[in-house]
Amino acid sequence: MRSYLENVVFDHVLRPRNPARVARTKDERELVYRFRHRVYASEQSDLDHPELDEAKRWIHSPIDDDPATTIYYLGTPERVLGTARIRVWEPGAVPADVRELHSLDLLPESERATVGDIKMVMLDPELRGAHVGAAMLVNALIDSMRERPVDLWFAISAPGLLRRYHMLGFDPHGGRFLCSHRGLEVSILGLIGDLAELERRKSPIHRALRRAKVPQGGPSVERYRAIIRGDRTVCSDTREILRRISDTSSGDVLHGLSARALQIIAGAGVVLELSDGDQLIYEGFIGKELYVILEGQIATERDGERLGVRERGQTIGEIALLDGRGYRTASCRSVGSTRVLGLRPTLLARLEVVPDDLAQLRERLSHAMALAV
């Protein structure tokens, strides 16, 4: 019942109240560029962003001016509260760098598909966590598909946001992990036309897409869905994660927690299968995800000097999670094949229903932080 009511509220309240406007004029676009700067540079201290222009205090790229690009924003021409950049290409016209970024060669007949790419999605801090971003994004997608159906949508996600994107119809599809200056990210594929799958997930967007008469996926959808199901690089299945984290040893950060606490943790996390040398975290950048090493090793370094190696049962990212600021104090890279559990900072709030477990976990993370500082 809750999911049904949430979907009704999303479709009839949130979506109409948060229209995605097209930034058509020079003034509108420049306001969007400055909003990006406010989020990335001022709020998140991302001063190494490749498109940053500190003199103009904006973030702008030649991609913004490409004919395939549409810039959407939430708010008014006087005050931008959110934005997304969408590019769409006809079959066979996808640039080589985009094909490589999203590993399109893994998808059969992708050269015959109309492809969309979603980037630079961000919201004002006061609007986060209330489905406002999803409402803006869905409105932008519907507007994009009014002109032409899009077969395959792609986006880039931080590990901690994969479950949210899953509810919007996006999933990892076996592509390589992307190691940017912001840390490890994942290319995700969205089959927006697969309305039956969105309904099965109780996605808040399936009613909106159905009412907008978005074209449903053709015969290739099931083939792509099979590729998604076969992906082994990322796991967000709660039962499988629970199985993996239930087998712990004395000294592991999750050892001895109650069954209910482990169920909450499994339902909040994603498991990542890293290859040798994958960069999980970059020193100095914003990020509050906590990682628990399930198998393998993670090397840490600060100012270019090796600090040590963490192993199974230990954590990565506890300092940024607990100190409240979110600044990464060290860089972290996988050593050999490594499996980690990624958890968002909202986990601590979820564990408030099991206060003894929460206190125990906080104590262990604080101890790990004291050893790392």
Results as ranks from 00 to 15, higher is better:
residue 202 K to S: 13
residue 238 T to V: 12
residue 263 Q to S: 15
residue 267 G to W: 08
residue 164 R to I: 09
residue 247 D to S: 15
residue 243 R to F: 07
residue 236 S to C: 01
residue 285 F to W: 09
residue 231 D to A: 13
residue 269 G to E: 08
residue 269 G to H: 06
residue 226 A to Q: 13
residue 257 L to K: 04
residue 233 T to Q: 09
residue 190 G to T: 06
residue 176 R to V: 01
residue 234 V to R: 02
residue 253 V to T: 13
residue 260 R to G: 00
residue 265 I to E: 01
residue 242 L to P: 04
residue 229 R to C: 01
residue 229 R to L: 01
residue 209 L to W: 08
residue 173 H to N: 12
residue 160 G to P: 04
residue 160 G to T: 01
residue 278 D to S: 15
residue 179 C to A: 13
residue 284 G to Y: 04
residue 235 C to R: 13
residue 172 P to F: 13
residue 279 Q to A: 14
residue 267 G to P: 09
residue 230 G to V: 00
residue 262 L to Y: 07
residue 238 T to M: 03
residue 242 L to R: 13
residue 289 E to Q: 15
residue 224 Y to W: 14
residue 280 L to P: 12
residue 236 S to L: 10
residue 225 R to C: 01
residue 276 D to R: 12
residue 170 F to G: 12
residue 239 R to H: 06
residue 195 L to N: 05
residue 289 E to H: 15
residue 206 H to M: 04
residue 273 E to S: 15
residue 288 K to D: 14
residue 249 S to L: 12
residue 236 S to A: 06
residue 222 E to L: 11
residue 206 H to E: 07
residue 176 R to G: 10
residue 278 D to I: 05
residue 184 L to R: 13
residue 184 L to M: 12
residue 174 G to F: 08
residue 239 R to P: 03
residue 262 L to C: 06
residue 207 R to H: 14
residue 223 R to I: 07
residue 161 L to V: 02
residue 267 G to A: 11
residue 223 R to W: 00
residue 240 E to L: 12
residue 272 L to W: 11
residue 258 S to M: 14
residue 211 R to F: 10
residue 196 A to P: 01
residue 254 L to A: 03
residue 207 R to S: 14
residue 196 A to G: 01
residue 211 R to W: 10
residue 193 G to K: 05
residue 288 K to H: 14
residue 215 P to N: 03
residue 214 V to K: 09
residue 225 R to L: 00
residue 201 R to P: 03
residue 216 Q to N: 07
residue 171 D to C: 06
residue 258 S to I: 13
residue 278 D to E: 15
residue 234 V to W: 00
residue 260 R to Y: 02
residue 206 H to I: 03
residue 171 D to R: 14
residue 241 I to M: 02
residue 271 V to S: 07
residue 181 H to R: 10
residue 197 E to F: 03
residue 264 I to Y: 09
residue 207 R to A: 13
residue 285 F to R: 15
residue 186 V to N: 04
residue 174 G to R: 11
residue 254 L to E: 01
residue 198 L to D: 03
residue 188 I to D: 00
residue 208 A to E: 06
residue 246 S to F: 09
residue 183 G to C: 11
residue 256 G to C: 02
residue 287 G to S: 11
residue 228 I to G: 00
residue 288 K to R: 15
residue 270 V to F: 00
residue 195 L to Y: 04
residue 200 R to G: 09
